[in-house]
Design a protein around this nucleic acid. Structure first.
Lengths: 101, 101
DNA sequence: GGAATGGTGAACCATTGGGTTCAGTATTAC
DNA sequence: GTAATACTGAACCCAATGGTTCACCATTCC
């Protein structure tokens, strides 16, 4: 319930297709950087950056386990952004409703 | 209900603070390019570009009225993106639930 | 008609962003 | 101890993005 508001970083993070795919992947269970990188044919360094962005957006949490880094989908990850959208969605609904007048 | 899937452009469009503010502004009623540009101290050309991006994302519809261009929040604008998020939100919930085991 | 208003399009510029490679460091396996 | 694994950091590259100005077209106002 905490999570620093910032809808800002969340949208930016989700704007990239690779990052969205990573989020979906993590939705099916946690993974290491290499496990995440492999299916994209991307370098470890590259994936590391993506994970960093996702972490900065509060969408993913990571923990170093031995030499690997375990990445997990953050709880309440999308709370801020869904709230923002639902509010606007309501606005849009009103616009739509009053349009036919 | 139509709206060409593309969660892609939507997130990218909403990643920019100016564009989010424009969307919120349009949530309180339609506006022209100049009306949108003024509060940001941004050039007309600059705002035009933003509106173009929002239009490309299906979030806004515009119509030329005389020499002005009327911009309106699109109906069902956030449908795709909220669907995407709700699905992931459910994943996140599961992750959270199974974590305590 | 002429001036002001509102929007466009083209060209340019600075920053950011996604990606790389290369040279490490820390763990784990043999 | 040596080798392989997994990540990390620094430096760099190129394309995309947010912004500008300038010149121009179309409408509206006097």
């Amino acid at each position: 319930m905490v999570h620093h508001s910032g809808v800002e970083r969340t949208f930016a993070a989700l704007a990239d297709p690779t990052r969205r795919a990573v989020v979906e992947r993590l939705g099916r269970g946690s993974a290491t950087i290499s496990e995440l990188a492999e299916p994209f044919g991307i370098s470890l360094t590259g994936m590391k950056k993506h994970v960093l962005v996702l972490e900065g957006a509060g969408l993913v949490v990571t923990e170093k386990v031995g030499r690997a880094r375990r990445c997990t989908l953050a709880p309440y990850a999308f709370e801020g952004v869904t709230t923002w959208l639902q509010r606007l969605d309501r606005f849009a609904a009103v616009v739509e409703r009053t349009k036919g007048r």
